[in-house]
């Protein structure tokens, strides 16, 4: 069965990973801007990275028949320096106009500080003023519930927000209900230790239904699995769900969400 991974950091994956993903049925990936794991030396470092996501990674994926799209933004872990962030935000429109860019993401909160929130407000304003789709990173572990509520508060306070074009990602058992009840898409990230397992993702889909749920690997340079979506498909099948139900989650739902972007031209 074919699938789409709507959140994966391809820049961290090897060519062998891409080949295996393609053999497993991956047709499309969406790569949000991420944190490199160390502080950048200047704003030009961001721009080089944005070029990587919009020029080099699409070529690497195309070698294996995988369509590559990207989200542009400043990750929450890089949002603490507000002045630095403003310089990057000022240049983001040029990258948002690139032909494979889906919108603004992944943006959000990490430790829920005032500075992170100030940067996030700037990014959300940019997205809403341009009619861009948004992909939100929610914090990890003990900060997740509080951070998710802060993000939902921020969006609820802006009448320009079209909730059907926003994904609240990395949802878990205590936050998925908040995102879905408010009308947003909810992302479930299959990631060892800090997010959800395939079994728990299937549990949540059984409890909340298949509408507006995306499943992704978020595979990056940390402990993660670029084949997590196929693992999830296997788990759904093993739990007795039919092929149509599996396809809905791993193919039709991401298509429905991503097609709302003016640059998403996969058919």
């Amino acid at each position: 069965m074919n699938f789409i991974d709507p959140h994966i950091h391809i820049a961290s994956r090897t060519t062998d990973d891409l080949a295996t993903m393609a053999r497993m049925g991956c047709l499309v990936v969406a790569e949000p801007a991420f944190w490199m794991g160390y502080d950048r030396s200047g704003v030009n470092s961001f721009f080089d990275y944005f070029r990587q996501l919009t020029e080099w990674e699409p070529k690497r994926c195309a070698n294996f028949g995988i369509r590559h799209y990207a989200w542009m933004g400043i990750n929450a872990k890089e949002a603490e320096n507000v002045g630095f962030a403003r310089e990057v935000i000022a240049e983001l429109p040029a990258f948002l106009d690139r032909p494979t860019v889906l919108g603004v993401g992944e943006i959000g909160l990490h430790k829920c500080t005032k500075n992170e929130l100030a940067t996030l407000e700037g990014l959300v304003d940019l997205a809403l003023s341009r009619g861009e789709q948004m992909l939100f990173h929610t914090p990890h572990l003990e900060d997740k519930y509080k951070g998710t509520r802060m993000i939902l508060d921020l969006l609820a306070g802006d009448s320009r927000t079209d909730r059907s074009r926003v994904c609240i990602d990395h949802c878990e058992e205590h936050t998925i209900g908040l995102a879905l009840a408010a009308g947003y898409w909810a992302g479930l990230t299959l990631y060892p230790t800090t997010k959800v397992t395939p079994e728990r993702a299937v549990d949540m889909i059984e409890m909340y239904g298949p509408d507006r749920i995306l499943v992704n690997s978020s595979a990056d340079w940390g402990p993660s699995n670029p084949f997590a979506v196929p693992d999830f498909m296997f788990t759904m099948r093993r739990r007795g769900h039919d092929e149509a139900a599996i396809r809905r989650i791993v193919y039709e739902n991401p298509l429905e969400f991503l097609r709302q972007s003016r640059h998403f031209d996969f058919v």
Binding site: Y145, M150, D153, G177
Partner: peptide
């Protein structure tokens, strides 16, 4: 599972964004 997640979450206090959700 949901209750376990809440047991390991920060208390639900007023948010920086202004007011409790």
């Amino acid at each position: 599972a949901e209750r376990m997640q809440m047991a390991f979450s920060l208390p639900d206090e007023p948010t920086v964004a202004g007011g409790l959700s």
